[in-house]
């Protein structure tokens, strides 16, 4: 089952020497500073490789077609934004990537393939549980469990049978730091996650997601329920996370897509209309529908 492609490694940004022991995916401490605020497009990064490869996907809810013939390649360690008006299928596609759609009755991918690092995730022998460990998700409405902050973060690890206290402590700190929440909550790790503010809750959910060390983080309109200040914090966090994770974010907010994504995909009526560098989408869209949408004429 070893599907690592040697070529991938060469093109990745190099890891700092602080990386922990080998054999586990690494989570580097966030590089606070330039990369967080600078526009990604402005950085001269090496050409990215494809991590998720979506080919000719059709998707149905019962008899209703939600996605038609989607072809999309999502780059490794980049932020990809899905934009489009309500009901265009962007969230549906996102939820296909960790098969959360399996939970919805009658929902199915009827055609096409989705490969993550070359592995077709809809083939029968794929274990959905393993898939979801590798592809984390943050939801529209922040959903911390009604447990302590500590328990929230360690939930996923305990599921995997990890219970060593010092190990868990380390992961909690690392994840909370990674989610830029550590300083705010380090003194009250045993208080309920429900006691945090909306923005903190959402960052807690992100911390919870990165604690299990996924490769991909799916974000389904993570800021739609947050106020502008909290939104800015989460966006800042996304900029930090992109160094270590591939992020796919669904958003209603075009400014958000413009601010924090490398590539943007525009969906309309279940079809992918345009997919390009974010800069191009917003400054020079090739498709008139895209232009109409990004300039605010509909949606």
């Amino acid at each position: 089952m070893v599907t690592s492609v040697p070529i991938l490694m060469d093109t990745r940004p190099s890891a700092p020497s602080t990386a922990p022991a080998a054999g586990k995916p690494t989570v580097r401490p966030p590089a606070v500073g330039a990369s967080a605020v600078a526009s990604p497009a402005a950085l001269n990064l090496p050409a990215a490789t494809t991590l998720i490869d979506i080919e000719q996907v059709d998707f149905f809810y019962g008899a209703t077609q939600a996605l038609a013939d989607i072809n999309l390649k999502i780059d490794d360690r980049k932020v990809t934004a899905f934009i489009g008006p309500s009901g265009c299928g962007k969230s549906t596609l996102l939820r296909c990537l960790n098969r959360m759609n399996d939970l919805i009755e009658g929902a199915r991918v009827s055609r096409g393939t989705i490969r993550i690092r070359g592995v077709e995730i809809y083939q029968p022998d794929v274990d959905v549980i393993e898939l979801r460990k590798r592809v984390g998700m943050v939801f529209q409405k922040s959903n911390p469990f009604p447990k302590s902050i500590y328990e929230n973060i360690t939930y996923g690890l305990r599921l995997q049978g990890r219970s060593d206290k010092s190990d868990l402590d380390a992961v909690v700190e690392k994840s909370l730091r990674g989610a830029a929440l550590w300083d705010e909550v380090k003194d009250r790790l045993d208080t309920s996650g429900l006691g945090l503010s909306g923005g903190q809750q959402q960052r807690l959910c992100i911390a919870r997601a990165i604690a299990v060390e996924p490769e991909v983080i799916l974000m389904d309109e993570p800021c739609s329920a947050l106020d502008p200040v909290a939104t800015a914090k989460v966006e800042e966090l996304i900029q930090t996370l992109r160094e270590n994770y591939t992020i796919v974010i669904v958003t209603h907010n075009m400014q958000q897509a413009a601010r924090c994504s490398d590539k943007t995909a525009f969906f309309y009526m279940g079809r992918l209309i345009e997919y390009a560098d974010t800069r191009n989408i917003f400054t020079n869209p090739a498709n008139p529908q895209t232009e109409a949408y990004v300039s605010g004429r509909f949606g």
Binding site: R132, F139, F145, Y155, G156, A209
Partner: peptide
């Protein structure tokens, strides 16, 4: 949300029900 959050973290159905 409790269920979705748990499943998205790679919990099995039974783990989700039992713990969350």
């Amino acid at each position: 949300g409790f269920r979705a959050g748990s499943l998205a973290l790679g919990a099995t159905k039974w783990q989700t029900i039992r713990k969350n």
